[in-house]
């Protein structure tokens, strides 16, 4: 254990931050913070943006960025909800409705695959910088959503959808959390135990060298955009269950929040680096802050922006001290220099 933290200093630091955050809210809010409803509330909320963050993590590791996932996710959710609403009515059995919902979610995933594929094509085949390509696609998807809904929310979902969303698996795991756990395990497996994960880190570090090493970089980057979009679309479908509707601008704050989480976990869009455990801890930290802050009655929702923005800036500034020119790196250089001398 001690060895693990010696090797993963950053993980240790995140855990200290986590403990500090927990301590802060325990002191200020007391037992209210540790209530069962609080805990289950958290477990209901973080899978939404947790799934999206996992997807975006793949993009970041490969040295790309996806700015389109919110717009694409909303578009897919709108289509899926429209489909479900059109194909269900009050007289149908739960089983039949479940089937329609399943098809709806499948539609959202398929749209995700398509959207990710387009992002990938723009980036790999046309050499458009990923930021630009995905901002443009974001405008397009948002345009579709607005045109389809005239800016209104799509409502009328069968009750079953949010019932399932609020149900527990095995009696105690909230359904969204269950989805997140599956998503997390798959992501961890992909990154740690497959050649895809290994290649992803190498592409993120130097895509050209990877190409010269007989690695199909174009295919893998397209695949990565697809994975990212599928994860975020599933996150958006979880969001639909909490909102009971779909709208063109739901989740627009998630872009900021997901990037914050990844930066907090030390994952930058420069590519080549990212530990999934760190990302998990960062997700949990952000959720705890979000829930804890909501317990202060005098704070409105926009206060959260202040905290997220401020936190991102502080983490960024501190991270220059940790890596790069900061004290960790300097210490490492000194150590290496001393070792060379001996």
């Amino acid at each position: 254990m001690k060895n693990y933290f010696a090797k993963n200093k950053y993980t240790a630091l995140l855990l200290i931050l986590l403990a500090a955050v927990l301590l802060f809210f325990t002191v200020t809010q007391g037992s209210k913070f540790w209530s069962a409803s609080m805990l289950s509330g958290m477990c209901m909320q973080f899978p939404e943006f947790g799934m999206i963050t996992l997807g975006l993590m793949f993009c970041f590791i490969s040295g790309n960025i996806d700015m389109s996932f919110v717009a694409l996710g909303d578009f897919a959710a709108i289509i899926a909800v429209k489909y479900i609403v059109a194909h269900t009515n009050d007289t149908m059995s739960n089983g039949a409705i479940g089937g329609v919902i399943f098809v709806g979610i499948l539609i959202s995933v398929l749209i995700g695959i398509f959207g990710g594929f387009i992002n990938g094509i723009l980036v790999t085949m046309l050499n458009i910088p990923p930021v630009m390509a995905t901002i443009a696609m974001s405008l397009v998807w948002q345009g579709f959503s607005t045109a389809l809904t005239r800016g209104d929310a799509v409502t009328g979902l069968p009750m079953l959808y949010s019932e399932v969303g609020h149900s527990n698996v095995l009696g105690f795991i909230p359904f969204p959390l269950f989805i997140f756990i599956i998503g997390f395990v798959i992501a961890a497996f992909l990154l740690k135990c497959t050649t895809y994960g290994e290649k992803l880190y190498m592409i993120g570090t130097n895509a050209k060298a990877a190409k010269f090493s007989a690695i199909n970089t174009k295919f893998l980057i397209i695949l990565t955009f697809i994975i990212c979009a599928v994860y975020s679309n599933l996150g958006c479908m979880i969001m639909v269950s909490t909102m009971s509707s779909a709208k063109a601008d739901y989740g627009s704050s998630y872009l900021m929040r997901c990037i914050l989480i990844l930066v907090l976990a030390g994952v930058l869009p420069d590519g080549g680096y990212g530990k999934i455990m760190d990302v998990l801890f960062a997700i949990v930290i952000v959720q705890i802050i979000s829930s804890g802050v909501n317990m202060f009655p005098q704070i409105n929702t926009y206060y959260a922006s202040l905290i997220w923005g401020g936190l991102l800036l502080i983490v960024l500034i501190l991270s220059t001290k940790m890596t790069g020119d900061g004290f960790f790196a300097k210490k490492a250089v000194k150590k290496a220099a001393a070792a060379n001398k001996n």
């Binding site: 930058l268 420069d270 926009y302 206060y303 959260a304 202040l306 997220w308 923005g309 500034i317 220059t320």
Partner: peptide, 22 residues
């Protein structure tokens, strides 16, 4: 701090919105 300008300004953007609205 020579940081990625996009991420920094994403942070300040949110921060400024938080100041005005929160």
């Amino acid at each position: 701090f020579k940081l990625n300008t996009m991420i920094v300004t994403l942070g300040t953007q949110t921060f400024f919105l938080g100041i005005s609205m929160g």
